[in-house]
Design a binder for these strands. Structure first.
Length: 1125
RNA sequence: GGGCUUGUAGCUCAGGUGGUUAGAGCGCUACACUGAUAAUGUAGAGGUCCCUGGUUCGAGUCCAGGCAGGCCCA
């Protein structure tokens, strides 16, 4: 076979499309799965994208991460099925449809039927599917696009229903309430989307109250009574919604906020009191004068300054657990409520600040989302009142009035929702009435009008209430401990997302609110009777059909719409038109909610297989996932719902390894957006740079979990530096391998018999193999990419190939040359394998070029990655080669300083060595160094030479352990060691020195001794290494240098004349050339002829129509002719 | 406001368990090299390691508090 040769520059984009065509033609992706049949599976779940928008460059990033590990595991021999999927439900799609139709949610059911609306959603959601599929293939993301799961399909929804029913049967599904924005005037809940409409937040003036909550004296509160005093002790809390005070059931403090206990008087009753408030807010309520004002003589109605004294200080944590008395109690005619004995306690609220108020927040769980949440976390009940039918509800009804049970305030409007006349002189709002009552009975510390912004209903302009609305929940809190426990077994990349963001989320878990009041989504499969005493949860289509039949028999429905085996649609409005019959014969109506779309995606492991209705075994084999990867923004989304459902349904994790990748930002670190015009088009990027360089750049530049600042200049660099170098290395190989007709031998020369350089690069290759496997195994693709890149550019290309060039282009195909080809071939094909997960097209192209027609796999992606052969790893060899590299570099540096070009041979370099191992190590690579830097030999200088000047440096790490604080003095003493002392230390291993009047014994391991200088020589040093160059030029060296110059000029001439590498030539030079050149030709004629592949090299009196060779000091006419034999 | 995260050269990034002189690549400047050549070598310029305190003989690294960016949540 021949190895294909390519012209520069390589078209990377075309290369990829060619490879893609061959994958398609030969079904390589399918084979990569089918060829692993019967092997252990590596389970991967595709987090479904939504195809209602165009894909962006960040999708290339996210999907490259997924692809890498699936391909890698395939190389390890695992079978990796990859089912694609589409996320099709959810608010963004509804909003998009509404925008396009120019309607709002209000119009659904009026201007457009639910049926038509949902039809629009169904069409919209797959609008960009073709683009997505195209990008998937262009970027080389292998996922099964032929048989994807789609969340709106009846089978998918049926699976969701089955899961819901399972949760229902386990008692995990219940109906409760959440606090949501609610408009009493409109009688409807408002979405956060509606609340974010412009103009909804208005400035209003409300009555505000700082209320006094009377502390109950017991063990928990005893610290507040440490100093005896007159009067009761109260906790102060501020509210801008006094009408919620009768619903108060708790008080929240900040855990680390400092609070003080202050002695003073109630300003309205003049009763002596002690009050608790945040230290930072004392000045807001008490004047500086009052701190010195006398307590005696302060009386009701006094306009005098309020006297006060700080009695004690606490933190919020100290106050937790203190009980206080109910403000509006039963004696005053307010109702009892369930769980009252657990109420009226101080708890911690993470939202408490000292920005305003008193630093203590009044909690009414029925009228605040934060309140509800912390109350639930702390077991504080909500104040619910039973109506005349016994149904529990908040103290405010749905029209915005206090319920009748609210004593003196019963039936009062919370805000003016009915538009009643407020102009009368005696008119009082409910807030004002409450304020008056509290001032009178001494429970208000301060009341005032206060202007603030408050949200209003966009339709009625009336203030919004935060109000408890019905919702269905999944009781995730019931399995909280198990969720936390199992999370600890998940390998998170980065770890902090698992312990931090996700872990904290689990620690503060509340029940999963499943309800959504929308149209396009999976309907909740629960039917209830009107009196709510009977209900049924449907778990399958079959069950639904059977229940409909029952309903038809009971004449609740006229006929079964699913009877004729038509394609069933489980969406609204169809399911809403189904009425079932209860065991007692009552009609049952579907609960109108849809479920959270996150349930859809959390159900992927089950619903993608239509489990449990089909594919039981497939499911078992593919649960849980070994690996998933999505954006870190999915932490509380997909990652959570997958985990929650798996724990509740299977008592298992859903995934064992997860990468939470960061964002792709523009090159300035700004978020990409179409509006700003800084979004990068993935198609254009791939078309310009090809998918491989794009992927390699994204993966190698920063770890996937860091944000990536996407800069196209970075792709260019990757292309040039990595792919360009690798391509050049291959081209070099192909050029000479074809000339020599090299074929990979079935019985290659044993590695042990190959040259030092071969064994070195093979050792490095095996080290690389081990390293890269390690990085891939621990889900760190960035380190893998960087390791491969460094190997290719620094080791393989820039050292192995550079130093081996002559072996490839000189002479016949000897055993040594064959070994060189074998070695380079092995390096290149292994690199192709290692890079294949990241750069799948280029790797396959490279691998194919190297192996086509031989007994190799059809594609690199079907190959098996070998284990690193540790027998071939020779650390000592790797170390001494590094010495060779460093000595060469130092020598180049010296040549540079002495203005001696590398072409000028020099006699020797001197390397001082202080121990025999270094000498031995360098000795083994002497030939390589000499060839690289063009010197005749290396001379070692050891201690006995007597010319070395040594320097000593303290080993601070060691000294620090021994001497601690005295290190500075000891270090200084070491710097001043004389050479005699040094010699003694070296010979005897220790040395007694005096430091600060004390005698210490220094040991050899406490210092670092190195040679510093060779008197009379130009030296260069790199750490402990020192090199000196002998710059003496003899006539012979000069001649040889000149011979090399001539070779160089002739090579250039060959090249310029367009000669092929293998062409033999005859050279004629003008006899007018200077005598030194003639002498050089005389002495080194054989060398020159060999180098330039000349059969003849002659001086002639006249060179006709030749070129002129330019030397530093002279010119020589010359001519090169091809000799045909 | 809370949780998490990032901050090192003009840019992109490395810098186990603390060790005194903080590195690489790109870019820039200069010189060299030239049968791998859009490659390579050598040298140079370029740093308050975000800030402030603390622990320590010693802090880019550990602790506390800030500042700035990002994500999620409220």
């Amino acid at each position: 076979m021949t190895y294909p040769e390519y012209k520069q520059p390589l078209d990377y984009a075309k290369l990829a499309t060619d490879v893609r065509a061959s994958w398609d033609a030969n079904g390589i992706f399918k084979k990569s799965v089918s060829s692993r049949e019967g092997q252990p599976t590596f389970v991967f779940y595709e987090g479904p994208p939504s195809a209602n928008g165009q894909p962006g460059i960040h999708h290339v990033m996210a999907r490259a991460v997924k692809d890498i590990f699936c391909r890698y595991q395939t190389q390890l021999g695992k079978q990796v099925p990859r089912k694609g999927g589409w996320d099709t439900h959810g608010l963004p799609i509804e909003l998009q449809v509404e925008k396009e139709l120019g309607i709002t949610k209000e119009d659904i059911g009026h201007k457009i039927s639910v049926e038509d609306y949902n039809q629009r959603c169904r069409e919209t959601v797959m609008r960009f599917k073709a683009q997505w599929d195209e990008l998937t293939q262009q970027m080389g993301y292998w996922v099964d696009l032929d048989d994807p799961y789609i969340t709106f399909e009846p089978e998918y929804i049926e699976s969701c229903w089955a899961l819901l029913k399972k949760l229902y049967d386990k008692g995990f599904l219940y109906k409760g309430y959440t606090i949501q924005p609610y408009s009493p005037a409109a009688g409807t809940g408002l979405s956060s989307h509606e609340l974010n409409q412009p103009g909804t937040y208005k400035d209003v003036k409300d009555t505000t109250i700082v209320a006094q909550f009377k502390v109950v004296r017991d063990a928990a509160s005893e610290k507040l009574f440490a100093s005896e005093g007159v009067g009761e002790t109260y906790i102060l809390a501020w509210t801008t919604t006094p009408w919620t005070l009768p619903a108060n059931t708790g008080l929240a403090v900040g855990k680390n906020i400092p609070y003080v206990l202050v002695s003073t008087f109630n300003p309205y009753t003049a009763a002596p009191v002690r009050v608790v408030l945040a230290k930072a807010l004392v000045s807001k309520y008490f004047s500086e004068k009052g701190a010195a004002a006398p307590f005696e003589g302060y009386a009701e109605g006094d306009k005098k300054v309020l006297p006060w004294r700080v009695e004690a200080e606490f933190t919020g944590a100290d106050l937790v657990g203190i009980h206080y008395e109910r403000l509006f109690n039963t004696e005053a005619g307010f109702p009892h409520f369930e769980g009252e004995e657990n109420a009226f306690r101080v708890i911690v609220g993470d939202f408490v600040t000292t920005e305003d108020g008193t630093g203590i927040v009044h909690i009414s769980p029925t009228f605040g989302a934060d309140d509800f949440r912390v109350a639930q976390l702390n077991g504080i009940p909500a104040l619910m009142v039973a109506d005349d039918q016994g149904k529990l509800g908040p103290i405010v009804d749905r029209t915005g009035r206090y319920v009748a049970e609210m004593g003196e305030f019963g039936g009062r409007w919370v805000k003016n929702y009915d538009g009643h006349d407020q102009s009368g002189a005696d008119y009082k709002t409910l807030d004002e009435s409450i304020a008056i009552r509290m001032r009178t009975n001494g429970t208000a510390f301060k009341t005032e009008k206060y202007e603030h912004t408050y949200p209003h209903c966009w339709r009625t302009d009336k203030p919004v209430l935060y109000y408890p609305l019905d919702s269905w929940f999944i009781k995730t809190t019931a399995v909280k401990d198990r969720l936390i426990e199992l999370n600890k077994t998940i390998n998170w990349k980065p770890e902090s997302t698992g312990t931090g963001r996700f872990g904290n989320w689990l620690e503060n878990l509340v029940d999963w609110n499943l309800s959504r009041s929308r149209y396009w989504g999976t309907p909740l499969p629960i039917w209830r009777t009107q009196d709510r005493t009977e209900e049924i949860c449907i778990g399958s289509i079959a069950e639904l059909k059977a229940e409909i039949d029952k309903a038809v028999a009971a004449e609740v429905m006229t006929h079964n719409p699913y009877a004729n085996g038509e394609k069933i649609d489980l969406h609204r409005p169809y399911v809403d038109d189904i009425f079932l019959v209860s065991p007692s014969g009552q009609p049952m109506y579907r609960e109108p909610d849809l479920i959270d779309v996150w349930f859809d995606s959390g159900a992927v492991p089950y619903a993608q297989w239509h489990y449990p209705f089909e594919n039981q075994e497939v499911f078992q084999k593919n649960f849980p996932a070994d690996f998933i990867a999505e954006g870190v923004d999915q932490t509380r989304g997909w990652f959570f719902t997958l985990h929650a459902l798996a724990v509740m349904l299977e008592d298992s994790v859903a995934f064992k390894n997860v990468i939470a990748n960061g964002l792709v930002l523009d090159k300035n670190g700004n978020k990409m957006s179409k509006r700003l015009g800084n979004a990068v088009d993935p198609f254009a990027t791939i078309a310009q740079y090809g998918p491989d360089a794009t992927r390699w750049y994204m993966i190698s530049n920063a770890p996937p979990w860091d944000n990536l600042k996407f800069d196209q200049a970075g792709i260019t660099e990757v292309q040039r530096r990595f792919f360009g170098t690798l391509f050049n290395t291959y081209s070099f190989f192909a050029l000479y391998a074809n000339l020599d007709g090299f074929q990979v031998s079935p019985t290659p020369l044993p590695v042990a018999e190959r040259t030092e350089l071969d064994r070195w690069i093979l050792s490095k290759l095996q080290s690389l193999l081990a390293e890269v496997r390690g990085h891939f195994d621990s889900y760190d693709p960035t380190k893998a990419a960087r390791a491969i890149q460094d190997f290719v550019t620094d080791q393989l290309s820039n050292w192995y190939v550079r130093l081996s060039r002559r072996r490839f282009w000189k002479g016949e195909l000897t055993t040594d040359k064959q070994a060189a080809y074998e070695t380079l071939h092995e390096c290149l094909s292994t690199v192709a394998q290692l890079m294949a997960p990241i750069a799948p097209f280029f790797a396959d192209w490279l691998y194919g070029n190297l192996t086509k027609g031989q007994t190799a796999a059809e594609s690199v992606h079907l190959t098996y990655l070998a284990e690193a052969n540790t027998m071939l790893i020779d650390k000592a060899l790797e170390e001494r080669m590094e010495l060779a590299q460093r000595i060469s570099s130092l020598t180049h540096s010296l040549r540079k300083k002495s203005v001696l070009k590398v072409r000028q041979p020099l006699q020797r370099i001197l390397v001082p060595v202080l121990n025999d191992t270094t000498k031995e190590q360098v000795g083994l690579v002497e030939d390589l160094i000499c060839a690289e830097v063009n010197v005749k030999h290396i001379e070692f200088l050891d201690d006995t030479s007597g010319v070395l000047v040594k320097s000593v440096k303290p080993n601070f790490k060691r000294l620090g352990q021994v001497y601690g604080p005295r290190l500075k003095a000891v270090g200084a003493r070491i710097q001043t060691l004389t050479s005699d002392e040094l010699t003694q230390l070296e010979k005897q291993g220790e040395l007694a020195v005096e430091v600060e009047g004390e005698t210490l014994t220094l040991h050899l391991d406490e210092v670092e001794i190195r040679t510093q200088d060779l008197p009379g020589w130009l030296v260069a040093t790199d750490g402990p290494l020192t090199v000196a160059l002998d710059v003496t030029l003899t006539d012979e060296l000069r001649q040889e240098g000149l011979a090399r110059e001539l070779v160089n000029r002739l090579q250039n001439l060959r090249k310029d004349s367009g000669l092929e590498v293998q062409d033999r030539i005859s050279v004629t030079l003008a006899a007018s050339a200077p005598t030194e050149l003639q002498a050089a030709v005389q002495s080194f004629g054989d060398y020159i002829r060999t180098e330039v592949q000349a059969l003849r090299l002659d001086f002639v009196p006249e060179v006709a129509d030749g070129a002129v060779l330019e030397f530093d000091d002279f010119q020589v006419p010359a001519k090169v002719d091809v000799v045909t034999t």
